[in-house]
Amino acid sequence: MSQATLRVQKISGHAGSVPGEDTQREYTVCKLIDTTTCIGCKACEVACMEWNDLPFGETVFDNTYQTMPETRWNYWNLILFNEHEREDGSLMWLMRKNQCMHCAEPGCLAACPADGAIVQYTNGIVDFQQANCIGCGYCITGCPFDIPKMNPKTHRVFKCTLCTDRVSEGLEPACIKSCPTGCLHFGSKDDMLDLAGKRAKQLRDHSNFPKAGVYDPPGVGGTGVVYVLHDATNPELYGGLPKNPHVPLSVKLWKGPLKWLGNVAMIGGLVGLFVHYLRYGPKAREEEDLAAKPGGGKS
């Protein structure tokens, strides 16, 4: 789903420079999800399917209002329903719209070996280019939010595009448009953080949520999707939102020191063997030499 109107600042599996690197004039875009005003109506789920024209799959009923246990390759936007008992014994319903977080430092992109299968535009959107995807699933190992999902038939990976096609035309994402309570907002990252901060303060000062706060995890460089949570100290309550997400250590090791070490060893090995041959040559040159006593001198 390549968008010619958007410049690219990061490319997966790419050797050499990137066309849009260092050229940013655009705003970094951001989606703000205020979980405190979400009513779990799933209008955004439907809008996502409609706009992206995703083939419908079966829903899975598990005695909650949740449509299915987790997002799928053809279901990018899922409201997670979580029942939470508060200290005073009262019940709270924590609903969280789950989708790709559009990390500033995306683990999926860092892990991907295919040139151009994952790109990050200068506006911050992380977008999968299925035409270039080879279906290795490395992105799945790189994502701290368990978002990329593989189409088992075509072996290509899909996830929320933040409606790249709409955003590049100056529209807001389809989910934002559909939300009836106004709990979804879209704009520049600065504006959204500002709005989120105000809302969190309001919750702390006037609504008896002293731990309310904004979720914009620094471990992945901040995200293009930020949440307002009633209890920002405990994001795990919201369907396992990680407290301090970061690109997994294994992926960092693999793409960092291991790659470095491996490349040095490979090149060093080739050079070493070549030099060894220059210095010592073959053990014996011709068939006749073989019969000679090793170490020189005919027998």
């Binding site: 599996g13 050797a15 070996p113 295919a114 290795c136 491996g262």
Partner: peptide, 9 residues
């Protein structure tokens, strides 16, 4: 190796 390094893709 192609998947190991972008330079060998």
């Amino acid at each position: 190796l192609a998947f190991w390094s972008p330079w060998l893709f």
